[in-house]
Design a protein around this nucleic acid. Structure first.
Lengths: 345, 345
DNA sequence: GATAGCACTCTCCCTCGTCGAGTGCTAATA
DNA sequence: TATTAGCACTCGACGAGGGAGAGTGCTATC
């Protein structure tokens, strides 16, 4: 694309992102001095429209960027907005806080992202933990109920209460616990699949009826649930966006944000360490076509551990949002990797 | 209040709840046959307005109920709407489901309430568990990190990761664990206050430096956090209410619903087993004056265990909502008490 | 190729007039 | 005395009409 046309497109997008109103040729020529008159701009705009980068809500209105326009901007022209020190500070503050509970930590991350971006934030964390199985405890509550507590090397704890079909006494339980520890402690959590369980516990399982129960029980706790835990924040920020003054649009977005599986689907983009920017029609969920999002993955020791995203109108401030999300995901990866290393010591 | 005036007020409230539009004298006389002409109704309405039970948005509009009118209706005239068997069924279905995780159970309760009422639901569960301390475990992650796991008789588990200022080895940890168990297992969780800890552990605490650490640690885990965990559901239902088509009103409600402490404040009504109906200006939170709510407490073995509420416009369907919430809170109390008894066996 | 000029188009906003719903008052009625 | 019918009045909703303003596309000119 010729340089001047690029500049015109850039001006239109920037202005529209800032003001949410169609941009006219006069405004472009005045505010962003390209050294040419409005008439010239008009010709360029006419071309840009023909090529599908911008569109006109109606004759005698200015132009607004199309999804294709935003895409071109993000891919070829966008420059990352430098972060202020206040922004960096806010992120680091959250990161340096305590977090023995992953849940509440992710929640405050989401709130921080919403505060910084003024958009709705979403995040997904796999239910299945990372790290190795550090310890495993079976606690008898009564003879029909057993509490299984799993401790990962990351300091994350999971627990589940099980109802047994047959009663069990303390000695038997201790014996099973012993055996399970022997076979499973040290294994990587993500490797504890059905097959792996079967392999390691094959002999044990044959041994007696109760062991078989324990087998079923572990299988349920450890495998199966590959679902992600979903967090959202700053839903209210949607309300301040002029594009969502229309209640119907708002409702269609809200129903997606409130529905965990849909949000999970949104966050399933790439597994790379690059941000993913998804614009308008590219959104993978029905009814989110008026939105864009910026999704970043975070990594613990080089391995993908979860996703963070920001959801807003297609008129998203891509430049700022990308900078912020890149920084936040980086800090989060660093913080969680540190923590992980520390707990492995 | 004279019988006929009551009937007129009743008709106005019912009609307004159903249609969200000012009710005229003609409509009252026609739809709710009181056997008198519109002119007579008009006189009654004029009286009701003078006494503050209804108001007029403007001359030549019908009347709408005032907060005082709703209050009178709820206190003196309202009849509980009988539940359908489908509604009962839905509630019982959720109740009979598994719930080893209190969190996800409460979440699905909230969703159910929203589905049944078509309003936004809110719930609060005290972080501090009910029941007795059944077991306590200290798990060493590395020499500076200890995971404290608390198991309540209700099957609810809490855990917290602690960073120690001094390293600790396995034997010492085991010794402390032993002591703590000895002193604390069996105690009622809600009684484990700072004072109680001090009393029981006084000698122990003096014993050595590490025990003192353990003391601090337990104090943090067990006391202090009297905060409630807040759940919400069906936020989207707000959008379908005609009174919240105005984005500003919507925003003021949303900002309250998104803010846990505010929701907690809303739910702090009475501790009795009666429902609390709060209407318009009675709402304890700034900015919620256009709303009403119905709050029910649920009880485990006769003791208050948490609160459930429904949040909607003042034009709330009190009759149906009260019936539903009464039923749901009752079922929830029953289910959780059963579970509690079962785990005590 | 860039620009100035100009007619044209379309939205926004204001005003005006009509319509209809609903009221309050008054006089008549049971 | 309570109820009702009749009637003038008020006010918001709605649609038509018109001016203002923003922005365009086209054409002729530099």
């Amino acid at each position: 694309m010729e340089e001047r046309k690029k500049q015109v497109l850039n001006a239109i997008i920037k202005d529209y992102i800032a003001n949410a109103e169609p941009v006219g040729s006069r405004a472009v020529s005045k505010k962003y001095d390209l050294g040419v008159s409005p008439a010239t701009i008009r010709n360029e705009m006419s071309d840009l429209e023909e090529e599908g980068y911008i569109e006109q809500p109606h004759t005698s209105a200015g132009r607004i960027p199309s999804a294709k326009g935003y895409r071109y901007y993000v891919d070829n022209m966008m420059q990352r907005e430098p972060l202020t020190s206040a922004q960096r500070h806010q992120v680091r503050e959250i990161m340096s806080g305590e977090f023995s509970e992953l849940d509440s930590f992710m929640r405050s991350c989401c709130n921080m992202i919403s505060r910084l971006t003024n958009y709705t934030s979403i995040a997904a964390v796999p239910e299945q933990g990372r790290g190795n199985l550090l310890n495993l405890q079976l606690v008898s509550i009564n003879e029909y109920q057993v509490l299984v507590i799993l401790l990962a090397s990351t300091g994350i704890v999971r627990h589940k209460l099980f109802e047994l079909p047959l009663p069990i006494n303390a000695e038997e339980l201790a014996r099973i616990e012993q055996k399970l520890r022997q076979y499973l402690v040290g294994a990587e959590l993500k490797n504890i699949s059905y097959d792996m369980l079967r392999e390691r516990l094959y002999d044990f399982q044959r041994q007696d009826k109760l062991a078989e129960q324990a087998f079923d029980l572990l299988e349920q706790t450890l495998t199966g649930e590959t679902a992600h835990k979903i967090f959202t924040g700053g839903i209210m920020n949607m309300l301040s966006q002029p594009e969502f003054q229309d209640i119907e649009k708002l409702r269609s977005m809200m129903s997606i944000i409130e529905d965990d599986p849909q949000v999970e689907k949104l966050l399933q983009t790439s597994d790379s360490d690059q941000l993913t920017v998804t614009i308008g029609g590219e959104m993978p969920v029905e009814g989110a076509q008026d939105c864009s999002m910026v999704v970043a993955n975070y990594f613990v020791n080089g391995e993908k551990a979860g996703s963070l995203g920001v959801l807003g109108p297609t008129r998203l401030n891509y430049s700022r949002t990308v900078s912020l999300m890149e920084f936040i995901a980086g800090e989060l990866s660093r913080t969680m990797s540190d923590k992980d290393k520390k707990s492995q010591e």
